[in-house]
């Protein structure tokens, strides 16, 4: 890659935050996440009367002294969360100055770091065309290095159908699925939003907490076009001849805003998180937005 994805600025502040997952983990391995399972953790959950077969080591003798009844202490068992971080590897992600793909990789890297730091398990996936490239599961700090290496080697440059690609991903347990994309496709805006909605619904069905990270470039947010131009779609190579007037640019911004709002509303409908990022923004700004939206906590 021309630009270093994971530079010094990237690592600054990563230690300050961790992901607040609403997903109460079930199954999986022990970790730092509170699970619904009551187990051998140090975190107290509740009391219940002793029944035969209970571990007598968990009887609370202090309570017995006050009530003359045997009570057993219940503790919340902490288990790891399984993160699936999906990166849209379509051609459109290569667009922009700086490229959206760079921010996408950094966001994926940052979330990987937060997850691994919290003793969770992470897998990285790139949606390339109708294929899905899936990394191995990463855990621990060693896993983070491997993950960064994997992210640096993600190849962008295909026409990706998000909905179709996501349905090819195997989900075995509850977990958190992060989708980093510009959400552009060859379909019309309404059809595109419908596909995104379908994808979120599918992920929710697969018991995933969904986080949508919408990455746009500055040129997409505030296009600076002039005169008569031929705009070429990076994915379909289709050309649209326009005369760029200030009125047309204003109209474009209105359409873009409506598109983003529709995605956000779709996310809200299925209790998914939605954060919009510009490719010239830093990880700190992402963290700030995440904290603001209750996705991250310091």
């Amino acid at each position: 890659m021309e630009e270093r994805i994971f530079d010094e600025a990237f690592f600054k502040g990563l230690n300050r935050v961790k992901h607040v997952s609403r997903a109460a983990m079930q199954g999986g391995r022990s970790g730092m996440r509170r699970s619904k399972a009551k187990g051998s953790s140090v975190e107290f959950a509740d009391f219940r009367e002793y029944v035969a077969g209970d571990d007598i080591r968990r009887i609370d003798w202090n309570t017995y002294g006050r009530t003359d009844k045997l009570f057993v202490k219940l503790f919340i068992e902490e288990r790891e969360t399984y993160y699936s971080i999906l990166t849209d590897a379509s051609t459109s992600m290569k667009y922009g100055i700086p490229k959206k793909s760079i921010l996408a990789a950094r966001l994926a890297g940052a979330l990987t770091y937060m997850a691994l730091d919290n003793l969770d398990r992470v897998r990285l996936l790139s949606l390339y065309g109708d294929k899905v490239k899936i990394s191995s599961d990463y855990t621990g700090r060693q896993g983070f290095k491997k993950a960064l290496s994997w992210l640096e080697n993600v190849e962008f440059g295909a026409n990706t159908d998000l909905n179709c690609s996501i349905r090819r991903i195997p989900f075995h347990n509850k977990g958190v699925t992060v989708l980093v994309s510009d959400f552009f496709s060859k379909d019309t805006t309404d059809k595109n939003v419908e596909n995104i909605l379908e994808a979120i619904r599918y992920l929710r069905y697969m018991k995933q907490e969904v986080i949508l990270l919408h990455v746009l470039s500055p040129q997409e947010i505030s296009p600076e076009l002039e005169g008569t131009m031929g705009l070429i779609d990076s994915e379909t190579e289709e050309m649209l001849r326009i005369t760029a007037t200030s009125r047309l640019c204003r109209q474009y911004k209105e359409v873009l805003d409506r598109f983003c709002i529709k995605i956000e509303q779709a996310a809200k409908k299925y209790q998914a998180h939605y954060i919009r990022m510009c490719s010239d923004e830093t990880i700190e700004q992402f963290i700030y937005s995440g904290i603001k939206k209750g996705l991250l906590e310091s």
Binding site: D182, F184, D187, T188, G227, M229, L231, S234
Partner: peptide
């Protein structure tokens, strides 16, 4: 003067919609 200057963009869909609206 109106010879078309070509420029690649990520997606045409939003532009198409904006242009049609105008």
């Amino acid at each position: 003067k109106q010879k078309v200057r070509e420029q690649k963009i990520s997606s045409l869909n939003l532009w198409k919609e904006a242009y049609e609206n105008i």
